[in-house]
Design a protein around this nucleic acid. Structure first.
Lengths: 216, 216
DNA sequence: CGCGCCATCGGGGACTCCCCTGAAAGATCC
DNA sequence: GGATCTTTCAGGGGAGTCCCCGATGGCGCG
């Protein structure tokens, strides 16, 4: 199966046939395209069967998105490296892909030569991100997604935020009441308001909400 | 590619004079070494004064380590990019540096040509890690620091860990029971065991315990 | 001043959480 | 085969959570 030993074995995953065709044309000489897929299930099956070194993966895919492919394949093997290739440079997409186990993320506007270089680097184990995306990833890693003055948080009153912080830390209503010199009933009222305003239904979701926003 | 015209302005931080000398010799032609320092305070002052584009930074430094330099400088400006250069490739060191805001981390065994390339990429905003370190960083980002087999977690049975994961995500006992096809009572039993073994007393502490270990 | 918003409380009820005791089946180890 | 561990499940009870219904007072605003 393997052609020249130095050609990297690549699998293409993108739901646009034309785009895959473009990739084949641009990469076909320097890389060994062992297979391709246009949806999640086909991709998983194909990657399992062909064992590529690098998977070029679109973020937005029918059947669950690129994340589903990465998670599914990496459950079995660690041999395959994923390089996400997407039109989107939304921080959220990038973060989710990296969390799932992709080792790089570049946008489709990348020059073919740069893409080839990125693929080689990913194959070698490097982490590859285009400049703007690197900032997102490292910022998320540092735990400070900047900007974002939260409109969700803004609709809470000062007292409600105060109570929220305590609840999110795991204190019971009784404990919060003692700390804020309130009655348990007042705490309950505030928590109810917070839950209603944030469209949540339990203190556990509230905890997750707060930790996601790094209020703790 | 770039030689004389737009030389990148670089600041060197390393407590070994001889090593700085080596860097100057190797990089002096292609880069503009605007200053250097051998300890934390001198480094902070020097970087503030010379405004380099890239700081080559040793991890182990007298006066607080590289982390102290990065955090201190980045409090004022975002213009400076840090590339950590260290003999250590301990995951802990790497993670701490990245958390503090460095945009790359390579070991001192790197070839001069590769170091030059890494510096250019960091200057351009890329995240740069040598192959082995990339794994550490991305794994940590994914929440699985490989070393560190947790003795706390080890004393839990497989089923208990399974239940723990669901509880930590905020599911009620009833929901967990449904997802795992168990009775609520069984879930209660497992949760009790987990709480007892981990010396915790509520599901909220359990959530925090799990999130601290990045099980969610 | 009336109106709305906020903060502070209460009763009551349905549900959830956590612990206690107890038990039965299966797997594993010696 | 017996000891141990794991996994499964049950009844009962005290505490915690969340919602419903209400109430009072303070504050700013037109």
């Amino acid at each position: 199966m393997s052609a020249a030993p130095n050609r990297i074995r690549v699998f293409l995953v993108d739901d646009h046939h034309l785009f895959r065709s473009g990739l084949r044309t641009e990469l076909g000489e320097a890389f060994d395209i062992v297979g391709e897929a246009g949806d999640v299930d086909t991709a998983i099956e194909g990657i399992r069967g062909t064992r590529p070194e690098v998977v070029l993966l679109d973020v937005h895919l029918p059947g669950g998105g690129g994340v589903a492919v990465v998670e599914n394949v990496l459950r079995d093997t660690e041999e395959v490296r994923f390089l996400a290739l997407s039109v989107s440079d939304a921080p959220r997409d990038v973060i989710l892909l990296i969390r799932s186990g992709a080792r790089g993320y570049v946008t489709k506007s990348i020059a073919p030569a740069d893409l080839a270089e990125a693929m080689r680097r990913v194959r070698d184990g490097d982490a590859v991100f285009s400049p703007r995306l690197a900032g997102f990833v490292l910022d998320a890693f540092r735990g400070e997604v900047p900007g974002a003055v939260d409109p969700e948080l803004d609709q809470l009153t000062a007292r409600e935020r105060e109570v929220l912080r305590h609840i999110a830390r795991g204190f019971t209503y009784k404990e919060v009441a003692a700390r804020l010199h309130l009655s348990v009933k007042t705490v309950e009222t505030h928590v109810s308001s917070v839950l209603r305003k944030l469209q949540l239904s339990s203190r556990h979701e509230l905890t997750r909400w707060a930790t996601d926003r790094r209020m703790v």
